[in-house]
Structures are given as structure tokens and as C-alpha cells.
Simulated assay, not measured.
Amino acid sequence: MMKEQTEFEDTGIIGGADGPTAIFFADKTHKPTLLQRVQRFFSRTKRHFIEKKIVPGTHTIEEVEEYLKSRYGFVEVDRKDSLFIEEYEQMRTSFLFEHRPDLVEGQKIDFDPSEDSAVIMRKLQEKSDKEREIAENIPREVFDIDYHRYIKTGKDINDSMDFTVERNYAYFGGGAQGSNGYIRKWRKIYKDVYKYYGVSEEDIKNKTQRYKDLILELSM
């Protein structure tokens, strides 16, 4: 449950490329507790040992897709499926503003994150709707994405997991729903796929974003 903003000093916003924007409220008025300091210490220690085990070796996004299908039995979703079309449009809009700001120059929609949380949520929806409208007015031949979605279901009807892939910008992500055991299974698969995607010697040496993303995923 989201607490009232009046109890907190700072507000942050995380925008996902393929999903809803998340809002978090950070309390900067108190020092970290002993438990928080201990948790941070163990997190740093875990990341340190993970970094020591990283070896160079990379695969392409297309190879990742084949790995999903051959090793784990994921199946690609029909591109005519209504859910696929909606997710494609959401990702296309997000990637347009992230990767091609030249095409939407002067059309970026901002708002004050210090406002009441209810106002922020309303303005986020208005922002999303307006950006979607802007994206729809840009021809596909000018800007488009190569979006694919893969799914895998469990024995229980409520268990499912999915992978979303965008080839042009080498993006992949996903999620799972269902039993705790099935979600744990998803997390293991996701980490394995991230390791398979891998990093190069240059990534390791320069600590690129690809390298940082790998370390972050493996330490979750």
C-alpha cells in the first residue's frame, strides 16, 4: 500500500520500457537502520563475488530467442493477438521517446513529481495517452520496433511466464504469475537467460551498461 506523500521528503519515478510506470517514495529524513546497513553490506559482498565469477562470452538477441524455445519450451505469441498488439504499441511509444527524441522534439510531457500521489497518477495516465497519440502520428516507415513475445505455461492453469524481446535495440524482459514455486522457477530461468546473453571482455573491462545489468540481475 502506498503511504501518504506527506510522510516523505522525496519522490522518484521509474519508467519501464514495456510496462506501467512505478512510483516510489524515498525517506531521506532518517539514517539507515542497523538492519539496512547489514543488508547493504551483504548485497555489496554478493555483487563482489558475482563479479569475480563473470567470464566473457556473448550471444545475440536472436540466439537468446532460440535458447528460450529450444531449452525451455517457450512459444512465440501470434502477432495478430490483441494483447500482443497492445503491448507492441506500448513498447513502440516508450522506445520512440527513449531512443528517438529527435522525432518528438518539443513534445515531451513533464509534470511535477512533488504533487499529491493521486494527482501524479492522473497526470501519468494523461502523459501516457498523449505520448501514444504522438507515436501513432509517426509513420511506421519512419520509426518502428521489432517486437516479439514468448510464453510458457505450467501444469496449473494459473501458472504462466512470458518473455518480451525487441531486436532493434537488443532489449529483453519478462515476468511470471501463479504459484510461488512457479515464480521461483521463472527467476532461475531469467537469470540463466541473462547469463547466456552474456558480456564481452570489453563490457567487463569498461563496466558497460550491459555488464551492470548482468550483475544486477544475478544479484537479485
Rank of each mutant, 00 (worst) to 15 (best):
R187V: 05
P113N: 07
K185F: 15
G154M: 09
E133K: 11
S160N: 12
D102A: 08
T45S: 05
E115C: 01
D213V: 09
Q90H: 08
E136D: 03
E76H: 12
I85H: 04
E87M: 10
V77D: 06
S117F: 13
H59N: 15
F143Y: 06
E131H: 04
D78W: 07
Y171R: 14
V199H: 01
S114H: 10
I151D: 12
F143K: 02
D203A: 03
S114Y: 08
E105C: 10
K191L: 06
R100P: 04
S200A: 10
M161C: 06
E4L: 06
N158S: 07
T21D: 08
H30T: 12
T29D: 04
T208Y: 02
T93H: 03
D81Q: 06
D110N: 13
I14G: 11
Q107R: 08
G106S: 07
K130A: 15
G174A: 01
K80M: 09
K188V: 09
L83Q: 07
T45N: 04
D156C: 06
D116W: 05
K152M: 13
Y190D: 10
D116S: 11
G178L: 05
Y67C: 09
I215Y: 00
M2P: 11
I23S: 00
P113V: 06
D162V: 13
Q39E: 01
D156I: 01
Q90T: 11
I204C: 09
L96W: 13
K123W: 08
Y190K: 03
S43M: 04
R140Q: 02
S179G: 06
D156R: 14
M121K: 15
G175M: 05
K53M: 10
D81W: 01
P139R: 02
E201D: 15
S82P: 15
D10S: 13
D10I: 02
H48R: 14
I23R: 08
L96F: 14
K3N: 02
A118K: 15
K28F: 05
R132F: 06
Y194K: 14
S200T: 15
Q36R: 03
V165N: 08
